[in-house]
Amino acid sequence: MSDQLLNLTLHVWRQDGPTDNGHFETYQAKDITTHMSFLEMLDVINEDLIEDGKTPIAFDHDCREGICGACGMVINGRPHGPQRLTTTCQLHMRQFSDGDELWIEPWRASGFPIVRDLCVDRSAFDRIIQAGGYVSVNTGAAREANEIPVGKLDADLAMDAAACIGCGACVAACPNASAVLFTSAKIGQLAMLPHGQPERQDRVRKMVAQMDAEGFGSCTNHEECEAACPKGISVNWIGKMNRELIAAMATAKDEVEVRGK
């Protein structure tokens, strides 16, 4: 293990609350070992700030294993920083060089209002799932698991989509701050599985409507989302969602008439 020490200049976005204007504040990170994770580097800065009687930098994090989706910040213009397929918490300082200057900002999107410093409000994602990102099956009403076979390829594809951690990097990376990669991944996962079929059309209509209502932009095929996604979710799911939506819209009118609503 080669141990190297780095000295870095950090420009960190500080904002007291949603209505505050916010500004960059500059900190010197000294003697940072290359084995530290990015968040551990911020921990060190924060502990010093506290001991100096100042307010530490607020940022969301929990698992620090790249799976809970809590962490996320834009580092030098890139969501989750320079390393591909890596969340901020899994990013290590050996990705940087001595003397580097880093600009650290929150996700910026109208769908994700800033809560404080680097923390944003991603509850819009929860509401998109609440609109229909589930299979309506009550506890206890399930039948024997092996009664419905699922082809291995379909199951694998469903898992590819289901790997989304809901971090929001896709939105942060998109020039339009669109949430289609997130939304399409859940729609795609459930559309691949037999259990998702009964609600398939309703689901896509409702989830897309909610996504639009949350103020996310629309997709104009920049594909920045896929590049930023720490789990490598493919933009192919977006195409699939659009096809699902067209099919669902085509039948929507008849269904609504039958249901009398």
Partner: peptide, 15 residues
């Protein structure tokens, strides 16, 4: 229950 919810467990070739 989990399978009915759409949890994508690993499968064999026979499904």
């Amino acid at each position: 229950q989990a399978v009915a919810q759409g949890v994508p467990f690993a499968r064999e070739y026979g499904g």
